[in-house]
Nucleic acid binder design. Structure first.
Lengths: 121, 121
DNA sequence: CGGCATCCGCCAAGATACTG
DNA sequence: CAGTATCTTGGCGGATGCCG
């Protein structure tokens, strides 16, 4: 009766990962940083759709989870650099796969999204 | 007035993938379905933290992007089954990696989250 | 069993402006 | 150049209930 079972196969590894990559721009930030785009202004230029504020927030969270680290050069003008940590590096294969999958399915997905908005007009 | 939110960059693979896996329970749903938990009630039992409504919504989106397909048996009581499509299958390696990464880093992440809320108390 | 309608709170994320 | 403060909103997702 109380053999709950239904073997929750959804061990929360997924949830954990989601906790890290959940932010809207976090994957992009990590990807960019991994490619040597590591200064705030550069990152903002690389992701102009977002704002400094939001990027800062998400960078702070990434830092909190120690997937990136922040180097502050106390000088004028200020200079800051972000770099992947060891842990962050281990995330890269995942990000690469996400990117790949998205690339392969882009046209298909795009179509669906566009048709969706078309209907709404 | 508040204009529409920023349109996501359709050229970016990461954004595309995010479009599919973005929902809170989508990865879990896909994972569960891939393991043969394919009826709505089973899925709900497997993810009791969520509600029928939300799961239905997300299943509908997954269906829209053709990563799963829905089989409806017109009978009483109604019976419905979800299955991964070809495209859905291609997502599995990604999900497995997410799950793995989360597992490996669970304790670390958990700690950070717990300490965070501790401070708030 | 499966699906849908309602209602609603919360907070991520966007816009803007200002400081050092 | 980097960072922060304030304000705003949309919409995701949670709670309930009814229907076939």
């Amino acid at each position: 009766m109380y053999e709950k079972k239904i073997p929750l196969p959804l061990e929360c590894g997924l949830a954990m990962t989601r906790e890290i990559l959940g932010g809207k721009w976090k994957p992009n930030l990590l990807f960019a940083i991994s490619e040597g785009i590591n200064r705030p202004s550069q990152l903002h230029r690389a992701i102009p759709q977002s704002t400094k504020r939001v990027l800062n927030l998400q960078l702070k969270e990434l830092e909190e989870f120690e997937v990136i680290e922040k180097k502050i050069y106390h000088q004028l003008p200020p200079k800051v650099e972000y770099h992947l940590t060891e842990r962050g590096e281990t995330l890269m294969p995942l990000l690469r796969q996400m990117n790949e999958w998205g690339d392969k399915n882009r046209s298909f997905i795009k179509n669906i999204i566009l048709n969706r908005t078309k209907v709404l007009d």
